[in-house]
Amino acid sequence: MSTPPQDTNSAPTPRHLSTPRAAALAGIAFAVLFGTTLIVIRIKMPEGLEDSTQWLKSQQSAITTATVLMPFAGISFLWFIGVVRDGFGRYEDRFFLSVFLGSGLLFLAMMFVATAVAAGLVASNTDVTDPTARAEVINFGTHFLVSASQTYALRMAAVFMISLATIWFKTRLMPRWLAILSYLVALTLLIVSEMSKWAELVFPAWVLVVSCLILTRSRLTEQQRTQHD
């Protein structure tokens, strides 16, 4: 009896796509890159938005560096969102997940806008020759940058933290103290976001804490699996 010919064009068996372990480092990369970007852009910025022309002239190279770093910080944040969502597993709640994703993407969009404005300010400092017009452009752009980053982006970051803390609190996927801490930090950001230009650094610091905890737990889980095997 002859053996039927094998189908060489048969499709390969699909395999389950797992989150790479390196993705757990995305939050740490975001915290470092984003924190550096904020410090570089906001350092020596006049509190009352006075003397903006002199600030832009003295910090031109630093601001240019920040505009280069920000896209990489954004990519890392998207990976961080993916890592956090992967941890939800079957406990995903569509309502809080929608708020979580929406606020995270809005935060990132606002920070991209603010950084793009900073890049535009650097270009306008050389393209606009009229001193009076240049001062007005820089003053407007600086107001826009501060509003986009502090008033809007930071509050979206607070909503991101609240939604994530609620998911953790309900599912107990993360320690209860982290959920409570996230609530407190988020409420603080909602209130004091416009009172200090350095309040923005609280969010990357929180992401750093969460990422380190996720990385530590993933390593412990991997060690336990290795011991059982």
Rank of each mutant, 00 (worst) to 15 (best):
1 M>D: 14
3 T>W: 13
6 Q>Y: 06
7 D>I: 09
10 S>T: 11
12 P>G: 10
18 S>F: 07
27 G>T: 02
27 G>N: 03
28 I>E: 09
33 L>H: 04
34 F>L: 07
39 I>C: 01
42 R>F: 10
42 R>G: 03
43 I>G: 08
43 I>D: 12
44 K>I: 03
49 L>F: 13
59 Q>P: 03
60 Q>W: 00
61 S>T: 15
64 T>C: 04
65 T>M: 11
66 A>N: 06
66 A>Q: 03
85 R>G: 07
91 Y>T: 15
91 Y>V: 12
92 E>M: 10
101 L>F: 06
102 G>W: 05
102 G>A: 05
107 F>M: 08
110 M>F: 07
123 A>M: 11
126 T>S: 15
133 A>W: 07
136 E>V: 10
138 I>Q: 12
138 I>S: 07
140 F>E: 12
146 V>H: 07
147 S>A: 15
149 S>V: 10
152 Y>E: 00
157 A>R: 00
161 M>F: 06
162 I>H: 06
169 F>Q: 12
169 F>D: 15
174 M>V: 14
177 W>E: 13
181 L>C: 14
182 S>Q: 09
186 A>T: 12
187 L>Y: 11
187 L>S: 09
195 M>T: 09
198 W>D: 02
201 L>K: 04
205 A>F: 11
206 W>I: 05
206 W>M: 09
207 V>H: 01
209 V>R: 04
215 L>N: 06
218 S>E: 14
219 R>D: 02
223 Q>Y: 06
229 D>R: 00
